[in-house]
Simulated scan of single mutants.
Amino acid sequence: MIGDKIRILGIDPGLRVTGFGVIDKNGSNLIYVGSGCIKTSEGELPARLKSILDSLNEVIAQYRPECTAVEQVFVNINPKSTLLLGQARGVAICAAVINNLMVAEYTALQIKQAVVGNGHAKKDQVQEMVMRLLNLTSSPSADAADALACAICHAHAEVGLGKIPLIGYRMKRGRLV
């Protein structure tokens, strides 16, 4: 971190598609650096998880972020899907930790609230606001937009919480726990 500038990697974990987005926060300015999607092929779970880990390590090496923001897993109707998503999320966190990056976690509700102002916003609303906040000329894919939104949420949280270190904490009902 140089002065008030920090580079943030946002990750939207998924077993089929993991979105990533990198922004710089310079004072109150948010600057788009890069984004994309890591897609895994059908196959055995360990190979797919390794593919996510290897690709995130490449992203980290290329963009050199100083911290990482990861979307938390929500529990859905299908427990098997939730467990698989949790494993992809664990790999994303491990990639950050292996590379000595701080990891902050945010719920989808917190991310949407920070970016759109409505915790129940739809995906297209998140994409539109990410475009506006980062002055993008075209809309990123839904997964990349979610990852950028996660990074934006962290940039706002860092300011809003008076730059309280978030390592080991998470937000619950607007409070650090």
Score class of each variant (00 low, 15 high):
87 Q>C: 05
67 C>K: 11
83 L>E: 04
78 N>Q: 09
65 P>H: 02
74 F>H: 12
89 R>H: 12
89 R>D: 03
96 A>Y: 04
90 G>A: 05
63 Y>C: 05
79 P>K: 08
81 S>M: 08
104 A>C: 11
107 T>A: 15
96 A>D: 00
68 T>W: 01
95 A>K: 05
100 N>V: 02
87 Q>T: 01
68 T>H: 03
79 P>L: 09
69 A>Y: 01
104 A>P: 00
78 N>L: 08
79 P>V: 10
73 V>L: 15
65 P>M: 00
101 L>P: 03
88 A>F: 08
93 I>A: 07
79 P>A: 09
79 P>N: 06
77 I>V: 12
79 P>D: 04
99 N>Q: 07
67 C>L: 15
77 I>L: 14
108 A>D: 09
71 E>V: 12
108 A>P: 15
78 N>T: 10
83 L>M: 14
89 R>N: 11
66 E>F: 01
105 E>H: 05
91 V>R: 03
66 E>W: 02
80 K>Y: 10
81 S>N: 14
93 I>P: 02
104 A>H: 05
105 E>M: 12
72 Q>Y: 01
103 V>R: 08
86 G>T: 04
72 Q>P: 01
82 T>I: 01
88 A>P: 08
95 A>N: 07
104 A>D: 04
106 Y>T: 07
89 R>I: 03
97 V>D: 01
94 C>T: 14
65 P>F: 02
76 N>A: 11
107 T>M: 09
86 G>R: 08
84 L>D: 13
90 G>R: 05
101 L>M: 05
84 L>E: 14
64 R>L: 07
86 G>E: 01
78 N>R: 10
104 A>V: 11
98 I>W: 02
87 Q>R: 11
96 A>Q: 01
85 L>P: 06
69 A>L: 09
84 L>P: 08
88 A>C: 06
89 R>A: 06
97 V>Q: 12
68 T>V: 15
93 I>C: 07
93 I>L: 10
80 K>V: 14
84 L>M: 13
70 V>G: 06
104 A>G: 06
89 R>E: 05
90 G>P: 07
106 Y>C: 04
76 N>K: 12
66 E>L: 02
94 C>P: 00
74 F>T: 11
74 F>V: 11
75 V>Y: 14
103 V>G: 06
